[in-house]
Design a protein around this nucleic acid. Structure first.
Lengths: 341, 341
DNA sequence: CGCGCCCATGTGAGCGCTCACCCCGGCGCC
DNA sequence: GGCGCCGGGGTGAGCGCTCACATGGGCGCG
């Protein structure tokens, strides 16, 4: 009945089981040199007392907290949040906790604050879902004592020590999307690019250009939001709508679809549209959106693996996961389209 | 040059500044009884050494980790992820870290594991974004030594000690949505409800029923996904499309819009649709969706406030944040609709 | 049969911090 | 002018764990 006073410590368990605290520790850490019988007694004492190992004490002496710090943008954007979920699951599999810091902007100050925050907390590694060029610079300036993994396609991250990079191969995904449109018979694909200070946006642009060739028209730069796509769509309606568009993400594509629908421009009959992300709901846009899917679960696992390799002192090369094209109605060439008008 | 060996400790700072470790501690904790001059010397030593307070040691002695554990479903659903972001920001304002655990299902086992995980880590409080009835029971069975706040409308959470509940007033939001449709002149509003083991779904249903009155038709139960809405929409097209629908979330509404568009049923001309959530992109659905917006930032702050009140021993009543109706084209009665066919 | 080695377990120190307590000197007050 | 009080600061213990080492009994081997 005195349970409220202080949670049971290892010594309490030891006393109850009639062993030393060290034996309890050995049981907890699966040390081989413990007789099954002793192990049993200790396990019983633990259960009886409701003992739970104090991780602060453990961290203090081992200098390892078993915690992964994740820096993520303060938005509900599909990509970043899915990546966070993927990371958490991968981290848990290897027994890590995940601590989160969101940041509103990726300037040096915000990044510095976030990293400082994590280092003070004693995290064992840091993952940054924050794919702007500013980030890499901010990190380079900090010289983290623990490994850092940057999650983005990041094809030109400066080679900073301890800084690894993993990502879905955005460039490959962009090639798939662009090639798909060309395969449909469109001779020219217009690219609505994302903010060019984001690695992902840069790479999607690069992938598009690789397939489109040098003769392709200039890309159009926009933000990541549907509102940007909508504005741009309205402008296209005024100035001329292309036959095929590859948008840098699904939200941009959604905004375009909205503008086209509003102005009576038919998709895919008048213009084919492809997005990127395969957001929840993309299958139900008007019309259902052809897009590029990313495997965020695999991405999380890759990031965690990369961090673990860093602990082991391995010099990990940049690693990428392939993307996958998901074909839906928005990009199917008119002749083949089925749904009645 | 021996910096790599061991990070500087408080005693190192003390030695450099020519004071005792306790004085350094006082400076760090803003204790008043330190001469400005001394404070200055200590601050300099800290900067020079790049000292960072070891939070594990601090946690060990204070028994407070300054960490908030958040349990959230393992999905990129708009509501949960937005709530997570809101929580993190509110937590940071009061100086808390946020640790995250995602769970795939809200059964007792998963919840138990997640809470056990956090308690071992020594979190000071736990927030659960997990609005199913199963959750409340699972929590009640655990008897957490730290305060727990359940984030959901949760109008019938059992009165468990230490268990607080905060949420956006789903019932109110549902009333707004339903009343809006009635105000448009529709005599009957059909409700497509979410999974009834979710508190939010229950409350949206209840709000709809309050305004619709007992004479209203039975609601239709579905999941949370666009695919569910789509299936249902197709069924409605076969069996009869109502004049006005209030869907339990935007994804369901999106699926309905998809089915209606595909089958040539016009929105809002033939059927008015209202959703719930105001997801990113809802303004750009076809047509733009009337929906109910929730202030997740305020929700996060309320949850954190509630936890702090719990520390102070206050017996906090259940608190709710009002929702806000956002009117767009999908619900505007035909006569008033503007965009040309 | 005695030496050494390994298995099983115990002992003590110390991780870096905060808390409780002690100490010293100056100043106001009766 | 002595006493108490308070500002400014120091000392030591101990939070709960792990690590390095000590111990002691059994068993294989020459």
């Amino acid at each position: 009945m005195n349970s409220a006073a202080r949670p049971p410590a290892m010594s309490d368990v030891a006393a109850l089981a009639g062993v030393s605290h060290q034996t309890v520790s050995r049981v907890l850490n699966d040390h081989p040199s413990v007789r099954p019988e002793t192990r049993e007694r200790v396990a019983e004492a633990i259960a009886q007392l409701g003992y739970r190992r104090n991780s602060a004490a453990r961290t203090l002496v081992t200098r390892r907290s078993g915690t992964l710090g994740v820096v993520t943008p303060a938005t509900a954007l599909y990509g970043p949040t899915s990546t966070l979920v993927g990371l958490e699951e991968a981290a848990r599999v290897v027994g890590w906790f995940v601590s989160v810091a969101t940041i509103r902007q990726f300037d040096g100050d915000s990044m510095h604050t976030a990293l400082e925050h994590f280092l003070g907390q004693g995290v064992d590694g840091i993952a940054i879902i924050a794919p702007t060029t500013e980030v890499a610079q901010a990190i380079a300036a900090i010289a983290s004592p623990v490994p850092v993994v940057l999650i983005s396609s990041a094809s030109d991250v400066p080679p900073v020590p301890h800084l690894h990079a993993v990502g879905v191969d955005q460039r490959h995904g962009a090639r798939l999307a662009t090639q798909h449109l060309l395969d449909q018979g469109f001779t020219e694909v217009v690219h609505v690019a994302g903010p060019q200070d984001w690695f992902d946006a840069q790479d999607r642009l690069a992938g598009w250009r690789e397939v489109s060739g040098p003769g392709a028209p200039e890309h159009i730069e926009a933000g990541w939001d549907a509102a940007d796509g909508y504005e741009l769509g309205l402008r296209m309606v005024r100035e001329g709508v292309p036959r095929a568009i590859f948008a840098a993400n699904d939200q941009l594509a959604l905004g375009l679809l909205h503008a086209f629908w509003e102005k009576g421009v038919r998709v895919p009959d008048d213009v084919a549209v492809v997005g990127f992300d395969d957001e929840v709901g993309a299958a139900h846009y008007t019309p259902p959106l052809t897009t590029v899917r990313q495997d965020f679960g695999a991405l999380g696992r890759l990031a965690v693996d990369s961090l673990q390799a860093a602990f082991a002192g391995e010099d990990v090369a940049r690693q990428q996961i392939p993307a996958e094209l998901v074909v839906r109605a928005s990009s199917i060439r008119p002749a083949e389209t089925a749904h009645g008008a």
